[in-house]
Every structure is written in structure tokens, then in C-alpha cells.
Amino acid sequence: MKTSRVSSANPLVMLWNSVIGKKIVMAVTGAVLVLFVIAHMLGNLKVYGGQQTMNAYARFLREMGWPILGHEEGLWAVRIILLVCVVLHVTAATQLTRLSWQARPQEYHEWKGLASTFASRTMRWGGVLLLVFIVFHILHMTFGVVGFSPGQFKHLAVYQNVVAGFSVWPVSLFYIVAMVALGLHLDHGIWSAIQTLGFNSGRNEHVLKLVSRAIAVIVVLGFISVPVSVMVGWVR
């Protein structure tokens, strides 16, 4: 057996240069993002604890790791990790998608799925929608540059920002649509990451898919509950 076919000094480069390696990168970065999303969703639920709880939580995020870490250092570390994950995840996805499109230059005139789901088939365009949403969401809730009337957004007054932001119905609607897309992405993505990393033993496949779906549903419901609550007036 020849040994020269695959060679690179750095295993990370090797991983990135391989199709399966890129999938592994997507699975690992995806897992980090899933953990973030879960934490984010749980954090969002603090809105039901009232204005003080919510805003205290926002301040806590900035003092994470104090006194070992300085002001906002922990937060920035997390932000950088997330940014790297998103960049890797999206880059790998784009490259793999292009590869897969090239792999079948002529489409079938008729094709039926037996095992794929709506979620699995919408990973790519759903992913694009999520990317657009993330950009919007950061501009909206972090920087307050879109979706607010001038002067309405106040830094660190998270509770007020949430109420004001979600009072605009098109914004809430977009948010809800994006969260449904997130749910679909997670439904297939969590299971898919576990499968890609080789933790599917065949026997537990059914359970893994179920757990994946459960997480997706819980995360979506958690997120959506906030704009819904604002719009129906439970949170004001």
C-alpha cells in the first residue's frame, strides 16, 4: 500500500483538506454553536424573571470570569470562539455544497427520497437564512442599529430593548421564521454531527434522532416564546 497519497505536515491542514475532515470540522463547530444556542435560549428565559433579573444577567455576562479575567474579556473570548466557529462552519459548508453540486452535473428528471427529511433537505438554504438572521440579530439586539427608532436602544438595558424590539411585528415575524429555520437546522444538524463523529452505533440511531429533535423543539419554543410574549403583552 502506498503511503504517499495523503501527506501533509499538519494534521489540522490534512483534516481541512479532506472532505470527511471538513465534515468533522462542521460537526465540531456545529456542536459548539449548538451549546451556545442552548445557553442563549436559557439566558433569554430570564426575561420572565423581570427587568432586574434580565439586566443583571446581561451585566454578569460582561463580568464573566472576574477577577481572573478583566471586564468583557470572557465575553470577547466567547465571541471570538463563536465567530471562528461560524466562519469555519460556513466556509466548510459552502465548499462541500459546491463539491456536491459538481458531483451531479445532470439532475434526475424524477427523484424520490426514502429517508431524507424536510429538515435534512433544507440544511443549505436554511443555513443561509440563519446566517442572514445572525447578522441582522447582532445589528439589532447587540448594536441597536436596525429595528429601533433613533434613541430607543439603550446599551445594557436588555429588557427594555427586547420589549421595544419585539413590539415591531415584522421584526418578530422574521425572528420567528428564523427560529423555525434554526429548529429544522438543529433537528438534522445535531443528529448529523453525532453521526459524522461516529457516535451512532446503529442500535441507538433512533434514540439519537429523537434526542436531536427534542433539543430542536425545546430550543425553538424557548426562543419563540419571547417575541410571542411581548406581542401578546405578557412581557411589557
Binding site: 500500500m1 502506498k2 497519497r5 495523503v6 479532506s18 472532505v19 470527511i20 471538513k22 465534515k23 462541500l96 463539491l99 456536491s100 453540486w101 459538481q102 458531483a103 451531479r104 427520497g113 426514502l114 429517508a115 431524507s116 427529511t117 435534512s120 433537505r121 440544511m123 438534522h188 443528529w191 448529523s192 453521526q195 459524522t196
Partner: peptide, 19 residues
Amino acid sequence: NMVAAMEAEGFGSCTNHGE
């Protein structure tokens, strides 16, 4: 080696549909 050969043939990438 086999993974490299598979990639060189121009097959696409798995997205775990299970088809």
C-alpha cells in the same frame, strides 16, 4: 488512501440524509 481516492473521483460529500 481510500478516502483520498474516493475524493479524487469527484463524488460529493455526505450530509447524512440516509438515502
